[in-house]
Simulated scan of single mutants.
Amino acid sequence: MARQEINLGTAPTGVGGDTTRTTGIKINAMTQELYARDALLGTASNRNVGLLVGNIQDVGSPAPMAGNSAFAEQGSHFISYGDNTTVAPPGGAYWSGIRAQYPFQNCAMDLVAQVVTGGSMNLMFRTVAGNGGGDPWRKIYHDGNTTRGSGGALSAASPIVRIANVADSARLDLKESTFEPAGDWGVANDQAEGVLVERLDVGQYRITGSLGLALEGWRTHDPSSPDGGRMLGITDSEQGADGAVVIKLFKQRWTLTDDGEMVPGRGAPMDVPLNSWIDVRLEMPQPEPQSPINTEE
């Protein structure tokens, strides 16, 4: 069947015909068709897949960047690192994150910024200028790998349990962030999940469910006042063969030496003041590795 074109409201094409009006109607119809298509498909239908500015990035691209590979792409895209890459941050086998690259004006070098994570606690960043080796990887501290002591000071820490009278505590910030009750006498963050704090006697508490005190770094922080960190007691710690930890708290006792100096020491046992807590840093069992998610049907 022969194709027929009907031009409404126009003169026939050909000799004496109004081709200008006919062409205008056709172009207008095409424009309306494009608008209708965009309304159905969205703006992504007009984008190319790739890594250039304005492209849509394909799932899984680019491949892990090895060494100082050419910094040809501009803009931002996702990156991943494996065991064999030389630019991966330390302390983890696999990392993923975002790589953003910006060209210097009137200069052949580019500035590359990378932010990656190797797990819930490991968050690193660095910058690379040009084709050089880049700055060292820097760790980002957050409420998952730090703790705020009873006096307000931040310390690098994880996992943490806080010893306090949970029911009667006057501190609204005792259970901040990821801290949840760990018995009647303690709260623990999500890295110390499963520990239990019990009160054995006045000023004496037992922590179970961990491997014991942290193997490196600080282990306990004495209770401090919330108005500037004034020490409210002195702690002592003992660890059993089974990993159970016993924390003892004593009042401060000042003794005058023969030289006329005031020396702090341990006095009578005391419970944790209601306006404070004791920070204890623990060593926890390594979590079981999770099986990779299978996205194939």
Rank of each mutant, 00 (worst) to 15 (best):
M284W: 04
N46R: 07
V263N: 03
M1H: 11
T146H: 10
G209W: 06
L51Y: 06
A192C: 05
Q252K: 07
I56V: 08
P89E: 00
F250G: 05
H142I: 12
T208G: 06
P287H: 10
D259S: 12
E216P: 00
P285Q: 05
W185D: 04
N84T: 08
E296A: 10
D143C: 09
G228M: 13
A268I: 05
P273V: 06
L111M: 15
G212S: 00
W254I: 06
N165T: 09
Y205F: 09
A244N: 02
V245I: 15
G134H: 10
V87I: 10
N106M: 11
V246M: 01
W95N: 01
P226F: 13
P103D: 13
E193D: 08
T220V: 09
D242Q: 03
N48P: 05
T22N: 14
H142W: 14
M1G: 14
P264Q: 12
F71R: 15
G133V: 02
L41S: 08
D58C: 09
Q252N: 05
Q101C: 12
G217M: 01
V49E: 12
A182Q: 14
I278V: 11
P223C: 02
L196E: 02
D236A: 15
M121E: 11
D110E: 07
G209Y: 07
V87R: 07
Y35R: 06
